[in-house]
Amino acid sequence: MRIAVITPVAGRHSHLLLQQDGLAAGTRVPDHYVLVTMDDPRAAPLVASRTPAAETVPVPVQDGCLPLAAARNAGARHALEAGADLLVFLDVDCVPGKNTIARYAGNAVDGTLLCGTVAYLPPPPPEGYRLAALPRLAKPHEGRPDPAEGQILRGGDHRLFWSLSFALTAVTWHRIGGFCEEYRGYGGEDTDFARQAADLGVELRWLGGAPVHHQYHHVSRPPVEHLDDILRNGAVFKRRWSKWPMEGWLRDFAEMGLVQYDSRTDMWHKGPPIDS
């Protein structure tokens, strides 16, 4: 089985280098390490002389919105054209565990999405993270299943899918059809991908022994800097699936007076409440 790891990149270069170190230290090193650089020409030279060797696919940014769906699709196309049988998607912040890639490869079957656990790391010490210390620094995210080493939880809830770390065979990728590229910027594209997979009968499985460690970076709760993206992408999802995603964030924004819900049209809009 030829394995490709696909990582979209737009900055966070120290995170990228530690991810590459994690891949190099694994019991199964990928055959292809595909970096999809989103207006980030500095990324490729940083990793060029390191292991595993990186293959760079540039994707332009339009209107200031990171094209995450298009980037993942471009990375998958490159990997498949190079002969990959298994696609492993990792966000740039995610450092795989020693056996993560091997576990994905050993349990990949057509018709399934595999998701490993994700542990969110605390801020790094002044000298930075040490690869060997990562498993001791954080537990898997409590909002997702946490199967034991060697365990597989079948029949997972597709609403809990996230694109930080997942794997699927080339056959399954073609069956789902990739990510919808109408989504630009933050949010919605992974929820859409999982919904498409569920409608096509692709099973979600949670895989024990396949952790990634998510390196710390500042986030806002709620993510007010992504308000416009969430409204735009949420409307795309609503049109495609007749339901709003990210409703928790939308309710938080409403409490802050940043958005309002129009029950007459079942639409969220920017601005103060509409007079009834």
Rank of each mutant, 00 (worst) to 15 (best):
Y183N: 10
Y186K: 01
A170P: 01
I176T: 11
Q151S: 10
A198Q: 15
L153E: 13
L207I: 04
W206P: 03
P223N: 02
L200N: 00
A198D: 15
W162F: 06
V212E: 00
Y186C: 03
T169Q: 11
G177N: 04
P245C: 07
F193N: 09
G201M: 10
G248K: 11
L204F: 00
V224I: 12
R240S: 14
A194G: 15
Q196W: 00
W162M: 08
N233G: 08
H217L: 08
G185L: 07
V171L: 03
H214T: 04
P245I: 05
D229A: 12
F193Y: 13
E225Q: 12
G234K: 10
A170E: 13
D229V: 07
P211T: 01
R240W: 09
G156F: 06
G178L: 04
V224M: 03
A198S: 15
G187R: 04
F179A: 04
G208S: 07
P211N: 02
G209T: 05
P222V: 12
I176K: 10
G150T: 10
L168V: 07
A197R: 02
E225A: 13
A254H: 15
G208K: 09
D252C: 11
E247V: 15
A235G: 08
R159G: 09
D157C: 09
G150E: 08
G185V: 07
A170S: 11
D157T: 11
L160M: 07
L153C: 05
T169F: 08
F161R: 10
L227Q: 02
N233E: 06
R251S: 00
D190F: 08
H218V: 14
E182D: 15
Y183T: 08
G201Y: 09
S163D: 11
R175A: 11
A197F: 01
I152Q: 07
